[in-house]
Amino acid sequence: MPCGRWWDAVQLAAFDAVLVINLMQHRSGPAIEDQNEDTVTWLVPVRTTDGWRIPSVTVLGRGQQIHVPPPRWATSRRWLIEPPVVGDCLTSPELLRTALATVLGSPRRGDGEVRGA
């Protein structure tokens, strides 16, 4: 499905993503695991990650595609954290950026970017 209309996406290697999820706990929105690519992807509001430069993180926006599995799908692409039946299916970009900075060891910067040391 295309990014940039209903959401953008933030993608991270699965190993680091599990640490981010453990840190965020119930504050994480739904997350898609792709076992073929060994990644986890969060959906975030459109254009809220513009300007992010975070080592090891891929930000996907307008013109890019992601695979969104149906709920309760049990293949190599599945929901690691299921979307709610009703409510917001997007992750807070501020909370996600803070968790990424903590897990990846990068300082959080006021200009909206997180950079490696």
Rank of each mutant, 00 (worst) to 15 (best):
P2A: 08
P2H: 11
W6K: 12
W6L: 12
W6F: 14
D8Q: 09
D8N: 11
D8L: 05
A9T: 02
Q11W: 01
L12P: 08
L19A: 15
V20Q: 08
V20S: 01
V20T: 06
L23N: 08
M24P: 08
M24D: 10
H26G: 07
S28I: 02
P30S: 13
E33C: 11
D34Q: 01
Q35M: 06
E37A: 15
T39H: 09
T39E: 13
V40Q: 02
V40N: 05
T41L: 10
L43Y: 13
P45V: 05
P45T: 07
V46C: 06
V46M: 03
R47V: 02
T48P: 06
T49E: 04
T49Y: 08
G51C: 04
W52A: 03
W52D: 06
I54K: 03
P55R: 01
S56N: 08
V57L: 01
V59E: 08
R62N: 13
Q64R: 12
Q64H: 15
Q65E: 00
I66A: 10
I66C: 12
P71W: 08
P71V: 07
W73D: 14
A74T: 03
T75R: 14
T75Q: 13
S76N: 01
R77S: 08
R77M: 02
R77F: 04
R78C: 07
R78M: 00
W79M: 05
W79Q: 02
I81W: 00
E82A: 14
E82D: 13
P83L: 12
P83T: 10
G87N: 08
G87P: 11
L90I: 13
T91G: 07
S92H: 09
L95H: 01
L96F: 09
R97M: 04
R97W: 10
A99E: 01
A99G: 09
T102F: 03
V103Q: 07
V103I: 06
V103R: 14
L104P: 01
G105M: 05
G105A: 00
P107G: 06
P107A: 11
R109S: 03
G112N: 04
G112T: 00
